[in-house]
């Protein structure tokens, strides 16, 4: 079984987001990282490979982005991915990215494809599902567990108020959320050294017309300063919540 983990390159979640004009992200001082959910997917893929050495042949990461994302791809290799594929293009929109990833999957016949449920930049939650539809593969969303039992895959899916246990045959796309792995795996020195010699395959994009376009950004509305209430006067706070805010 060949596993593909799709990764997105995003600003570190503690980065202060600013724009140059209204259309362009100001990249000065931004630390770029693997999208947190993709990092968890990669961790789980590597755990599955470690636990099922005969069954899981390889873990590959795929990314759609320009050459400037290579440090993030190297990081994925340092964490333990065997190889990487980079589609050499800006990520115009989710539809464009999914169309590129579909070509990557078709070219190498990956069996299990993992996508994070959303990326922390555009918060769209769409690439994984789009990819599955392009491929006409089944997809399962909100996956918080993937296990291999007797050579078969089982998935845990989060539903309102509980969980479901699902089984299905590869190939399919699992769209994963928190819980899939306990903590993201961290690259060790040996991994960092080895990553230098691991291959990043470069692929040119296929022609795809994006369906959406971001026309402008704006900052969240300015918030009024917090109104402090004396901790010895809980009645005052409750009165405000009841009679001014009308929320209780």
């Amino acid at each position: 079984m060949k596993i593909l983990v799709c990764i997105s390159n995003v600003p570190d979640t503690t980065t202060r987001i600013r724009f140059t004009g209204s259309k362009k992200l100001d990249t000065a001082g931004i630390q770029w990282v693997i999208n947190p959910w993709d990092e968890l997917s990669l961790t789980r893929a590597l755990e599955l490979k470690d636990a099922n050495p005969g069954l899981v042949e390889s873990v590959t990461v795929a990314h759609v982005g320009p050459v400037s994302s290579e440090p993030t791809i190297r990081k994925a290799l340092a964490i333990g991915a065997d190889s990487a594929i980079r589609v050499n293009s800006d990520a115009h929109d989710a539809y464009f990215v999914a169309a590129q990833l579909a070509e990557v999957v078709k070219a190498d016949n990956f069996d299990l494809i993992l996508c994070g449920i959303e990326s922390s930049d555009f918060n769209g939650s769409t690439v994984g599902g789009m990819l599955a539809e392009f491929l006409q593969y089944p997809s399962v969303s909100a996956v918080s567990g993937i296990n291999i039992e007797n050579g078969n895959l089982s998935l845990t899916r989060e539903i309102d108020g509980g969980k479901e246990l699902l089984s299905l045959a590869v190939p399919f796309v699992a769209i994963v959320q928190k819980g899939i792995a306990k903590e993201p795996r961290i690259a060790a020195m040996r991994g960092i050294m080895m990553a230098r010699s691991k291959p990043i395959k470069l692929v040119e994009p296929v022609m795809t017309e994006p369906l959406t376009e971001i026309v402008s950004y704006e900052m969240p509305p300015e918030k009024e300063a917090c109104r402090f209430i004396d901790a010895d006067k809980p009645g005052e706070l409750i009165d405000i919540l009841q009679n001014v805010e009308k929320v209780i």
Binding site: A94, A98, G129, M130, A132, E133, S139, S141
Partner: peptide, 8 residues
């Protein structure tokens, strides 16, 4: 989130 992207 499961259905909208496939529909797209």
């Amino acid at each position: 989130k499961a259905v909208a992207p496939r529909l797209s």
